[in-house]
Amino acid sequence: MRVGVITFPGTLDDVDAQRAVKYADAEAVPLWHADHDLKGVDAVIVPGGFSYGDYLRCGAIARFAPVMQEVIEAANKGMPVLGICNGFQILCEAHLLPGALTRNSKLHFVCRDQWLKVENNQTAWTTRYDKDAEILVPLKSGEGGYQADQHTLDELEGEGRVVFRYVGENPNGSRNNIAGITSANGRIVGLMPHPEHAIEALTGPTDDGLGMFLSLVDSVVKA
C-alpha cells in the first residue's frame, strides 16, 4: 500500500503527511511537483503550505504543475486523493472539487485547535469515524473561507457531500460552516484543517486525525 505525498516549492506539511501515512502502516512515497510521475502509488495526498508562494490565488499555479496533470487523470479514474489546506485549495482550482477558498472573513490568519463534526463516514478517507463524531484537529489558514454558489451548496448538502463541518463559531466565514467536502464518488476529499498534525498525543492535540489515514488503508485494501 503506497501513498504518494506531493511536494511543491513552498509546501510545508509534506513531512507530517508522510509521517501520518507511516503511522497508518502504509508506505509514504514522495512525489515531486515537476515530475509527470505518480510512481505507481495507490492514493495521493496534496499537503498544506504555500505552493509557489500562493501567488495569483492559493493553488492557482500549483494546479498546472506537471504532477497535478497526473493526479487529475488518476483521480478521474477513481484514485483516492486527499487535499489538506493548501491541498484543498489546489483540488478546487483543479476542478476536482467544487467551490473555492477565500480570505478569512475577519482577515486574520487563524491558528488553533478546531472541533469538527464528521458528517459523512462513507468516503475513502473517513470510514473509521462514527457518523457525527466530533474530532479535534489543528486549523491554520488565512484563506479558508469556503465559497460556492447556491446551486453547488444545495447539491453538496443534498448529496451528503459535506464531510466535515466546523463545530461552534465559524472560524473563517465558510458558507454553511463547511470545513471539508468530497467528490460525487466519495474518493476525493478536501478539508482546511490538518488531520496529519493530530495523529498522536505527543505531537498533536489528539490522535483524532489518524482515522483518515487508517480509513484510506482500509478502502484500498478492500478494493
Binding site: 472573513s105 482577515l107 465559497q147
Partner: peptide, 9 residues
C-alpha cells in the same frame, strides 16, 4: 470578486 462573494479586504 463577484458581487455576492464577501470581500473582507
Amino acid at each position: 470578486p463577484k458581487p455576492e462573494i464577501l470581500d473582507p479586504q
